[in-house]
């Protein structure tokens, strides 16, 4: 840094470490709770150091029926549902956005701007504000309790379309001219040139969308009524309700941990892409 002030440097590290501790504290407590037996978790104050029941809780949560005394799908099934939903949303969004951005940037056709504005409007209508009528549409289409119902209504997105439009606009015109001289038609150009040239953007967007999809809550809560279709994120709420009668905090917290690990892993493992995706989609 500019001046050499050891005290200030130490203070900087200290502040950051305190910050990390505060940020990480809820996770630590969750982890600790997931390593104790249920009896210990009913005695105040709850422990602050890990116990020895991690694997026991882990297997019971993952393969057992969730909380004892309630009727729910096993957690592995919920994880699978969440994974399906997250993947369908991310791939679906990326696919339809790539296609529509390609059409809008590389073709001149009647109503082009009309379509552009139609897509733009979706930016202004988050699912939370039109929840009831959207639910009715999905119900009328018979898509309740299905992966399609979980994912398709969430895959139209103006943000992703805008991002790809931006990416395509920075690709030099000569790429297209060169490809045309080489004899590539529109679809060939799209597949051989555009997709490979945007692949880091696609990967960055995937990271963001995977988290978005995985963390959906209100939507799956409304359109899944069968326990088989429950996602892991929404199951937490049901467990919290059950906890008021029979508190099994070790299992609840283990479930929370399992629900968190996939998206957190994606963020940490693909940090560079994640940062790129975040800054690109929001600007």
């Amino acid at each position: 840094m500019i001046e050499n002030r050891p005290v200030l440097n130490i203070a900087s590290h200290a502040v950051l470490i305190i910050g990390i501790v505060i940020v990480a504290l809820p996770i630590w407590i969750t982890f600790v709770a997931a390593t104790h037996d249920p009896v210990r978790m009913t005695q105040a104050p709850i422990p602050m150091l890990p116990g020895g029941h991690f694997w026991e809780n882990f297997t019971q949560t993952l393969f057992g029926g969730g909380l004892s005394g309630t009727e729910s799908a096993p957690v592995w099934r919920m994880l699978l549902n969440s994974l399906m939903m997250a993947l369908m949303i991310s791939f679906g969004k990326i696919a339809i956005s790539l296609l529509s951005a390609f059409a809008i940037v590389y073709f001149k056709f009647p109503f082009r701007m009309g379509f552009f504005w139609l897509i733009f409007i979706t930016l202004m209508l988050p699912v939370e504000v039109r929840i009831l009528p959207t639910f009715e549409v999905v119900a009328d289409l018979g898509m309740l309790n299905s992966y399609w119902g979980l994912s398709i209504p969430l895959i139209a997105s103006a943000t992703a379309t805008f991002m790809f439009r931006q990416v395509f606009l920075t690709i030099p015109d000569e790429m297209l001219e060169s490809a045309r001289i080489d004899g590539a038609g529109p679809l060939r150009f799209f597949w051989d040139i555009l997709i490979p040239l945007s692949r880091t953007n696609i990967a960055a967007l995937f990271v963001i969308l995977f988290i978005y999809g995985w963390n959906q809550y209100l939507w799956p809560l409304l359109i899944t009524t069968e326990t088989d279709m429950t996602t892991i994120v929404m199951s937490i709420k049901q467990m919290l309700e059950a906890a008021e009668q029979s508190p099994q905090w070790n299992i609840i917290m283990m479930t929370a941990l399992l629900a968190m690990i996939p998206p957190v892993f994606v963020v940490v493992a693909m940090q560079r892409l994640f940062v790129q995706g975040l800054t690109e989609t929001d600007k």
Binding site: P172, E174, M175, E177, S178, R180, I181, D182, G183, A184, I193, P196, L197, R199
Partner: peptide, 21 residues
Amino acid sequence: LEPAERDIAMVFQNYALYPHM
């Protein structure tokens, strides 16, 4: 005719090489 059907080849100012190939 489309460019590809004219039996021509073109060298561009910025070369227009496909960067990923």
